[in-house]
Simulated scan of single mutants.
Amino acid sequence: VFIPLTVGGGVRSADDVRELLRAGADKVSVNTSAIARPELLRELADIFGSQCIVLSVDARRSAEQPSGYEVTTHGGTKSAGLDALEWARRGEELGVGEILLNSMDGDGTRNGFDIEMLKAVREVVTVPVIASGGAGKAADFPLAVEAGAQAVLAASIFHFQEVTIAEVKQELSNAGYEVR
């Protein structure tokens, strides 16, 4: 394929990132290992550049955190004990070039992106935010972009051919957004 690829999962070190970049990844996302050792984000950004380090934030609603959103691990089943907005802000401070914001409450529901959470994260970071979790129809995508997402991510609606990429592109174009 001739599209930029962001690859993640099990990334724990600069050697892991180097291997993924050599294999063809354009960007590498980091999640659990950064929670365990936040300095890893700064190290990776210093070595490879902020433009290719993405902080993946798996967040869900929680009354336990000041913002109302907490960071999770293990597919959203375990709390990391971190406020999601503070963690996104900290990731930017440590040098990541993008935030992949995964709504664990919305993931797989097909009820649309968590616009409220997306807007809240956009208020605390200046790096691009990728919205993920909850897409159910082509009309969901322009709403996420309108809320501040610089990119949108979906999986199951495409895997199960409920929505086509062409339909999403058309919806985004109709809403006035540039589409490649």
Score class of each variant (00 low, 15 high):
138 A>W: 12
161 Q>T: 08
136 G>R: 10
60 R>A: 08
87 W>D: 01
104 M>R: 04
130 I>P: 01
156 S>R: 08
47 I>H: 02
104 M>I: 15
2 F>M: 02
117 M>R: 04
126 T>D: 10
98 E>A: 11
113 F>S: 04
85 L>W: 06
121 V>P: 00
81 G>H: 11
87 W>V: 06
115 I>F: 12
94 L>G: 01
100 L>I: 11
58 D>Q: 05
71 V>R: 09
117 M>W: 11
8 G>R: 05
48 F>G: 01
65 Q>P: 00
125 V>C: 05
34 A>K: 03
114 D>S: 07
64 E>R: 15
180 R>C: 03
126 T>H: 11
141 F>L: 03
19 E>K: 14
129 V>I: 15
165 I>P: 02
61 R>L: 05
155 A>V: 15
12 R>Q: 10
180 R>S: 10
93 E>Q: 14
128 P>E: 05
34 A>C: 05
70 E>R: 14
103 S>R: 05
15 D>P: 00
34 A>I: 13
65 Q>T: 15
166 A>F: 14
162 E>N: 04
3 I>M: 09
124 V>W: 10
44 L>Y: 05
127 V>W: 05
39 E>K: 11
136 G>S: 07
146 E>S: 10
180 R>P: 10
123 E>H: 13
50 S>Q: 06
6 T>C: 14
150 Q>W: 11
49 G>I: 13
74 H>T: 12
48 F>C: 01
104 M>G: 03
75 G>W: 13
145 V>K: 03
82 L>Q: 13
7 V>S: 04
160 F>W: 08
124 V>D: 03
8 G>K: 04
132 S>L: 06
110 R>L: 13
107 D>V: 15
172 L>E: 00
80 A>I: 11
126 T>M: 03
